[in-house]
Design a protein around this nucleic acid. Structure first.
Lengths: 210, 210
DNA sequence: ACAGATTTAGTTATTGGTCACTAAGTTTGC
DNA sequence: GCAAACTTAGTGACCAATAACTAAATCTGT
């Protein structure tokens, strides 16, 4: 009695394949979980964001936990892709610098990704989720090690600075407090030699493609 | 009608002053919130831990938010105290090293404090809490700056490495992955020159007191 | 010294609301 | 016409916060 008999049940929403919906749901989940965290985000909020009823989410995912893990994996996947693209044709310290710059750029362009990471780490305190979150971390660790070849203090500082970026994203601190950039007379960012190497590699690749 | 007429209402629990209870509640809150976070921890769990009814917590604190903030402040206070004690009689790079060591020791001895910090940072994404959490961060930042005098890259790396410790605590990673210590033939930890300076300062202070 | 008054530390019972998840049905594209 | 995409309706569990009450400690006047 709530709807006229022959009016469409779900007017306004587009019909999608389950896989397409799942993908949309994961994207939405990243957005929602990144600010509310696992316990502070309702499945209803995620459903609303993709224009679907809340119970339908449970046809796409076994439970909230699975949806959260999918969001975490998507988040790490996007970071991995970023690192991948940033270090094409580079290795050693040049690759390390490139990754560092790329991550700091994420802080400006996609703070959601860094916030979602924070949420993943605290969710990792729950024994039910810890193993999966650790696996995400390990993959990232692995990528950095093989792409850069750095170890010891250098590796530690790389990840450490990444984690500081995450906190800056969470608290919305002005990033120049800890990451100052220097500008030339034109107001452009001054790049170091490693940056120039990275730019050269990118230019070479572009020339190759074009 | 639920209890025999003259039987004590709260048999088994000790009577405390409100201030004592509040202190106990804050300690319990740090324990509980550090693993469950703001949204994943019930006030009932905290009340149970100090042997008090759940509604009574709301006589001691206005609401859950206040209780959480008290726990966050207690957590940061304990870190500040640790840094304070670790750097007595030191400054400059020696103080920086001493703080760094002290923080890494917290990772072994009081992982709860580092986990609680993570919870504070993600809770700081909530606009209602962000200002207070930022204030805690600022205090810590200020302390490190005045005690060590470091700036720029050095300061950044100091905080960055701290944040990495927090993540290690959260995910229960083996800390030697990023913080290897070297041991001598006796199996004792090898200290650097700055450590020795710190030890000398501590010894001098002990001699002064004794 | 002690009875009554007052404050302080606690209780139980309850409520309004939220949330994850289930069951059973309806619509739509092919 | 059927399978796959989606809905509404509902349930039981939990949870922050309130209300109303009780008992123990402390103060006060005589």
């Amino acid at each position: 009695m709530t709807a006229t008999k022959n009016a469409p049940h779900n007017a306004g929403t587009v019909r999608m394949s389950a896989d397409e919906r799942r993908t949309a749901a994961v994207r939405a989940a990243v957005e929602e979980f990144s600010v509310g965290g696992y316990n502070g985000t309702s499945t209803a909020a995620i459903a609303k964001r993709i224009g679907v009823s809340q119970p339908y989410l449970f046809r796409l995912f076994d439970d909230k936990r699975q949806l959260f893990l999918a969001a975490v994996e998507e988040c790490f996947r996007r970071v991995v892709v970023t690192f991948d693209q940033a270090t094409e044709g580079l290795d050693g310290i040049a690759a390390t610098h490139a990754m560092g710059h790329a991550y700091q750029e994420l802080l400006d362009r996609e703070p959601t990704l860094l916030r979602m990471q924070m949420q993943a780490y605290v969710a990792g305190m729950d024994p039910d989720l810890q193993a999966d979150i650790r696996a995400c971390w390990s993959k990232l660790d692995e990528l950095v090690r093989v792409r850069t070849g750095i170890t010891g203090e250098e590796l530690t500082n790389f990840f450490a600075r990444g984690m500081l970026c995450n906190v800056i994203a969470a608290l919305d601190l002005p990033k120049q407090i800890y990451f100052e950039e220097t500008y030339d007379e034109q107001g452009d960012v001054v790049h170091c030699d490693y940056c120039r190497e990275a730019e050269a590699a990118a230019a070479a690749k572009a020339a190759d493609a074009g």
